[in-house]
Simulated assay, not measured.
Amino acid sequence: MVARLCMGIACLLLAPALFANTGVAFVHGTGSQTDARNDYWTAAMVDSVASGLDDTARHVVVNCDFEQYMWDEAAAGCLAGQLYDFIHAHDIDDLVVITHSNGGNVMRWILSNPTWDGRYPDIIEATRWVNALAPSSLGTPLANAVMEGNVFESSLGWLLGYQNDAVRMQQTHWMAHYNQNWLLGTDGRPSLPRGFWSVVGSNVRVAVWSGNSYCGGYHYNVGLAVTQAWLDSCADGFLECDSQSGAGHVWFEDTWMMDNGYVLSHNQSRRPCFGLDNILRDDL
């Protein structure tokens, strides 16, 4: 938190001299998206955050096939193409990337492997930092369970899909291999070239009489409450806190900054719940 605050103050001091063109990109998680603005983030979330820009047109909502391995052309290649086109079309030299869940892994692949694709260096150069909402940096035991074909497959189909390559990749032992050999920013590895700031969801609250249980969709939160029982006590229903905080730096844990100290389930961390959108907007 202190390091992030200091960096933020530095940006404020330097901004008038730099005359930066700030833009924001929304990068979805696991799944093949064609309308992530409405189907994944909701227009309310995107529009609220983008309203913090001097020019609200300087935002892009990425739509890619994140059911593939992170390095696949349909995943990182698609993301790179959309980010590259966006920064050049709008002369963006100060890009804030907002990712959710597995989107953090795909973005971290780009940051970690600048020579893999000729578009990567321009993207890295333009990026201020990544705000990673509930990133699956160390994977999740639930991906292990889905690949083993047990009950989690049906419980998490709405969130993960089924036995696709992205789910396979997010198994904990697979992510350990990638983090050790291909990705930067985890313990014992070199730092990422740009800040990777995680927002950590710590629990799931579901009660029919509690209004905060309905934000983001009550039925989704009920499903996450079921899977929560199979994770560590600190988890958002899909990812344990250790995984969410496994790469880069922790920006904040939900209860530190959400309205009324509310927690964020894995679904709520991609929606305008409890002031999250306001925090992301102010960060621009």
Rank of each mutant, 00 (worst) to 15 (best):
R189Q: 13
P190M: 11
S191K: 08
S191Q: 11
S191W: 03
L192R: 01
P193V: 13
P193N: 07
R194C: 02
R194W: 05
G195H: 02
G195P: 00
F196Q: 03
F196A: 03
W197T: 01
W197K: 00
V200P: 00
V200T: 06
V200L: 03
V200M: 01
G201Y: 00
G201N: 04
N203F: 13
N203M: 09
V204E: 09
R205K: 14
R205Y: 15
V206A: 10
V206E: 04
A207V: 04
A207I: 04
A207Y: 12
V208S: 12
S210P: 00
S210E: 11
G211D: 10
N212W: 13
S213R: 06
S213K: 04
G217K: 06
G217F: 08
Y218D: 02
H219R: 11
V222L: 07
V222I: 11
G223H: 02
G223C: 06
G223W: 00
L224D: 07
V226L: 13
Q228F: 03
Q228T: 07
A229M: 09
A229R: 10
L231S: 06
S233F: 03
S233W: 06
C234E: 15
D236W: 00
G237V: 03
F238K: 01
F238N: 13
L239F: 05
L239M: 08
L239T: 04
C241Q: 08
S243V: 11
Q244I: 01
S245T: 07
G248D: 11
G248R: 03
G248L: 08
H249R: 15
H249W: 14
V250F: 04
V250K: 04
V250L: 06
W251N: 07
F252I: 15
E253K: 14
T255Q: 15
T255E: 15
M257C: 15
M257Q: 15
M258Q: 13
M258R: 06
N260W: 12
G261H: 15
